[in-house]
């Protein structure tokens, strides 16, 4: 054998320590972790989180990483599901200093690196913002000038995760546009979109297919399927429309 390549490190369960938790919306929290031995990630990747009960019962869920690769800490966004097995523990019980079992980073398909360039079209529904926020943060940290539009659907302004950071980054950067749609309630004087993402909205917001944007769509399955279908109908290359579905419940 002339050359031996080392395969990717085996995916192992690691222990992360919670260093901060922060409410982002009435039902969503950021969990910031330090993970000894973590070897970095790409924007868009996820981790699997595993909880083990005293009787040995285990439950496992996937959470997208919201922090930039340039950030040494790992940020996850957890949306609390009423009947969830994992999310109520993560949002209600987990405290700074607690340990959390996780493995990753996982995924090489739904990822973006600054060198991939743009234009970028990011479409988020609810906590589907997490992997797209990693891309936006990475884009800012890497000083990428890739023209980027984020179309972000939330129930209300209060439910909009990372709203201040999104709007601040957009205000500082002419090549980054953030377009909100608030589907359930709007603040007084709201002039933006106030309906679910549809064909007309995507036609107005998305760069033209001739610009060959790279699209990343993340959110509840129905939203993702609508957006991906419409983008292809509008003439976008299906190979440049990447999707990450959460399933029916959104997290």
């Amino acid at each position: 054998m002339a050359e031996t390549r080392t395969p990717r490190r085996k995916l192992v369960w690691r222990i992360g320590e919670v260093v901060e938790t922060r409410p982002e919306a009435p039902h969503a929290k950021s969990i910031i972790l330090e993970v000894p031995g973590w070897e970095g990630h790409k924007a868009g990747q996820h981790v699997d989180v595993r909880l083990t009960a005293e009787d040995g019962y285990q439950a496992q869920r996937s959470y997208s990483i919201a922090s930039a690769p340039e950030d040494g800490r790992l940020a996850l966004v957890v949306e609390r599901l009423e009947d969830g097995e994992v999310s109520p523990y993560l949002t209600d019980e987990l405290r700074v200093g607690d340990k959390l079992e996780l493995r990753g980073p996982i995924g090489g398909w739904f990822t973006w690196e600054a060198r991939d360039g743009g234009p970028l079209l990011l479409v988020a529904g609810g906590s589907g913002i997490a992997p797209l926020m990693a891309m936006i943060r990475h884009r800012a940290a890497a000083r990428s000038e890739a023209p980027t539009r984020l179309l972000y659907s939330s129930r209300s302004r209060e439910d909009t995760i990372y709203v201040e950071e999104c709007d601040r980054l957009a205000a500082e950067d002419a090549a980054l546009e953030v377009i909100h749609t608030l589907t359930r309630s709007q603040p007084p004087g709201w002039t933006g979109y106030s309906r679910r993402i549809d064909r007309e909205m995507l036609d107005a917001v998305a760069p033209s297919p001739q610009e060959r944007p790279l699209a990343f769509v993340c959110g509840p399955t129905p939203l993702v399927e609508t957006v991906a279908t419409v983008l292809v109908e509008l003439g976008h290359d299906p190979a440049r429309v990447k999707t990450e579905r959460f399933g029916p419940t959104g997290g």
């Binding site: 996937s62 996982i106 398909w109 739904f110 399955t221 579905r245 959460f246 399933g247």
Partner: peptide, 10 residues
């Protein structure tokens, strides 16, 4: 209940 191939990565 459909998810993306990404979710089988782990």
């Amino acid at each position: 209940n459909r998810l993306d191939g990404n979710s089988a990565g782990g």
